[in-house]
Design a binder for these strands. Sequence first.
DNA 1: ATGAAAGCGCTAACAG
DNA 2: CTGTTAGCGCTTTCAT
Lengths: 341, 341
Amino acid sequence: MKFKRLNRVTIKDIAQEAGVSYSTVSRVLNHYEHVRPDKRQRVWSAVTRLGYVANPQARSLAGGRSHMVGLLVPELGNAYIGQVVRGIDEALAEAQYELMLYTTHRQRTKESTFVRTLTYGMTDGLLLLVPTEPQAYLETLHEERFPYVVIDHQGFDDFSPTVIAKNYQAAFDATRYLIELGHRRIGFIRGLKHLSSAIERHKGYRAALEAHGLEYDPSLVVDGDFLQGPSYAATQALLDRPDPPTAIFASNDLSAFGAMDAVRVRGLSIPDDISILGFDDIPQAASVRPALTTVRQPLVEMGRIAVQLLFTYIEDPDRPCERIELDTALIIRDSCAPPTR
Amino acid sequence: MKFKRLNRVTIKDIAQEAGVSYSTVSRVLNHYEHVRPDKRQRVWSAVTRLGYVANPQARSLAGGRSHMVGLLVPELGNAYIGQVVRGIDEALAEAQYELMLYTTHRQRTKESTFVRTLTYGMTDGLLLLVPTEPQAYLETLHEERFPYVVIDHQGFDDFSPTVIAKNYQAAFDATRYLIELGHRRIGFIRGLKHLSSAIERHKGYRAALEAHGLEYDPSLVVDGDFLQGPSYAATQALLDRPDPPTAIFASNDLSAFGAMDAVRVRGLSIPDDISILGFDDIPQAASVRPALTTVRQPLVEMGRIAVQLLFTYIEDPDRPCERIELDTALIIRDSCAPPTR
DNA sequence: ATGAAAGCGCTAACAG
DNA sequence: CTGTTAGCGCTTTCAT
């Protein structure tokens, strides 16, 4: 029952091997400046010779960095999240940091408990990806000056460092593209109503309509919850109208896929009978047929940038709050064309 | 630059609060038997009163369990992996364990370095999901009696605890289903050649053919690498033949989607002109049109079972190697029908 | 049954 | 510049 401890080479072993005190070893390992070059050399060679691997536990316990960051995600198995996590993952690996992953869906009421555990010396910082109710703990985190960065959440406070895409502008531009193609009745599949990204995209859609002298028709807006199934059903409803839209702007690619399914099932063709425009540009968007015209969010980059930003706070917890808004791009593929009706 | 330590309540605080020594607190926390009930009571009440949260670092450093397990995955953002991870995630959460996630793609040559770091007191055990070259470290792990479980990898050793689906049987049954539907020319989209699951499925396909008196035709077998794009191209090749197959069995759902794209692009209909059969039953399989007939792997369950198995080894590292093979099920939806040619 | 004390491996003052 | 020393929070003997 006793847990086996593997005998590993420790800092002491390499101190002995290099013939220095073990605090010197620690200094070398942590890239301290004032160490005589020859000793530094001896230490490193001993490190490689003995195959030393630092023990993060001890390191963090002793008050140093743990070289881990915690990541809170709502769920896995979603391409959008997967891409962002990939960016985070890569950037972290480059900096020799490790990832502690928390999936909040497993105990949604205890999102804040996780945050407490995570901040307990276990990680050097936190990355919060589309958090649901961050208000509960963000303030505490900030007061304790615990480094964290929020990703893809239009915060309602002014102290939370954030990385987010320009959702409003992107949706505005995409809608304008459809309008310029000649569409007048443009359906909109809305995302999860409580997520700021969904709200912003909806606003952008509406604003573009009005900016071009088109009336905003609420009955053309249906709920897709960012999911393929619900969007499929919602699109059916749109198609059942006496005057169905000639184009549909979906709040994310998954919704666009659902819309495509619904259109196809009626024997209609994309983009001849109806245009479909998505949002995100997940890998699948390019491989689906017809290839999806969509708004590209720099997903991987969002992850990478969030990591960079987090590092600045780990370096200096008192740095003022920074908010990074990323540009998007309209990727024109084959699912949109001028209306034929 | 100094890393801020948040002042948390420690075992000493609650020792004082409960009026006992802090080793007693430790005993209570670890469910030791010989502690007087009233003291046990006082300790627990102090714990809740002060809101004590254990420090996993210290716990593990001191030789106890870290209550973390490491998970090695090849990549994220793939529905198949996402589902398995979900199962792992859920089972771990229920047991109050945390997850350390490693994505090997980020340094594929250093898969073994990760394993070393992970085993270094950082985790109580390891979960290896479709590892690429586990031979390099599995033996060491086993010799050190470090608890680990391999998921979805047909090992070549007899000491690695494993959880895997019955790939051979599943592929055999699926192929037979197609044969019984009346198909005689059945194409096969093969998966990543070095993965045992892909190899087994291919074997099952071939065996079923031969068991039913059909000749195995290598030219009907194309490579899809488990990916949608390559499978799309591979299917084109199949369709270009003078005598294209009337059914295609894809090694995973992603490949099946690629095949569907290719079929559709030619204006052919599924399943009237050609039947498509997948493998995995990722969520998308049900929402795609036509809904995909596919082999269901109990993905989430695989994850959960792997966790259970791992726990038995954490309890007793000397337990003999156990290998769990999970049944699959053929999920009949709309993408397969009798051939019309 | 329970307190005292010795570390786990490492970092960070503190002296030289 | 570098060795010494005191912990970080917790588990685990070892006594009692």
